[in-house]
Lab assay of single mutants.
Amino acid sequence: MATDAALRRLLRLHRTEIAVAVDSAFPLLHALADHDVVPEDKFQETLHLKEKEGCPQAFHALLSWLLTQDSTAILDFWRVLFKDYNLERYGRLQPILDSFPKDVDLSQPRKGRKPPAVPKALVPPPRLPTKRKASEEARAAAPAALTPRGTASPGSQLKAKPPKKPESSAEQQRLPLGNGIQTMSASVQRAVAMSSGDVPGARGAVEGILIQQVFESGGSKKCIQVGGEFYTPSKFEDSGSGKNKARSSSGPKPLVRAKGAQGAAPGGGEARLGQQGSVPAPLALPSDPQLHQKNEDECAVCRDGGELICCDGCPRAFHLACLSPPLREIPSGTWRCSSCLQATVQEVQPRAEEPRPQEPPVETPLPPGLRSAGEEVRGPPGEPLAGMDTTLVYKHLPAPPSAAPLPGLDSSALHPLLCVGPEGQQNLAPGARCGVCGDGTDVLRCTHCAAAFHWRCHFPAGTSRPGTGLRCRSCSGDVTPAPVEGVLAPSPARLAPGPAKDDTASHEPALH
Rank of each mutant, 00 (worst) to 15 (best):
A144E: 06
R12K: 15
D105A: 15
L62V: 02
A145T: 13
P254H: 09
T183A: 06
Y90H: 03
A145V: 06
N179M: 15
K243A: 05
L7N: 00
H14C: 01
A138R: 13
A144M: 09
M194V: 14
K50Y: 00
L13Y: 14
V104S: 01
S64C: 00
L62M: 05
F43L: 02
P101W: 00
A186R: 06
S234D: 01
A152Y: 13
I18Y: 00
R149W: 11
I209W: 07
I181C: 03
A25S: 03
T3W: 15
A61R: 06
L63K: 00
A6P: 02
G242R: 05
P95M: 14
Q182A: 15
A141M: 05
V214P: 03
P119G: 06
S187T: 12
C223S: 04
P27W: 09
T232Y: 07
L13R: 14
E229R: 02
L7A: 01
Y90L: 02
S249R: 01
E53S: 06
L63E: 00
W78L: 02
G155E: 07
D238N: 05
R174N: 00
P254S: 10
G91P: 04
R149K: 06
P166A: 12
K83E: 00
D238Q: 09
S153E: 12
I96H: 11
D70H: 01
K159H: 12
S234T: 05
V188F: 09
A261G: 10
A31Y: 13
Q225F: 01
H35G: 02
G219L: 12
V38N: 00
Q213T: 09
L63D: 00
V214S: 04
F77A: 03
L93I: 03
E167H: 01
S169Y: 15
K164D: 00
V206E: 03
T16H: 00
P56T: 05
K83W: 02
R174G: 05
R149Q: 15
L93M: 01
A144D: 03
P27V: 01
E17D: 14
R203T: 06
R174K: 09
Q262W: 13
R113H: 11
G269V: 11
E136R: 01
T72F: 09
I211Y: 10
D84E: 07
G54S: 00
V37H: 03
L32N: 00
A134I: 14
G201Q: 11
K159S: 08
L128A: 13
K243Q: 07
G201F: 10
L62S: 02
T46K: 00
P266Y: 11
P124V: 15
S248T: 09
D41E: 12
T183R: 09
E237C: 12
R247H: 00
S196V: 13
F82I: 03
K161Q: 07
K221G: 09
R8W: 01
Q94P: 02
Q157T: 07
A58T: 02
P116I: 14
S169L: 15
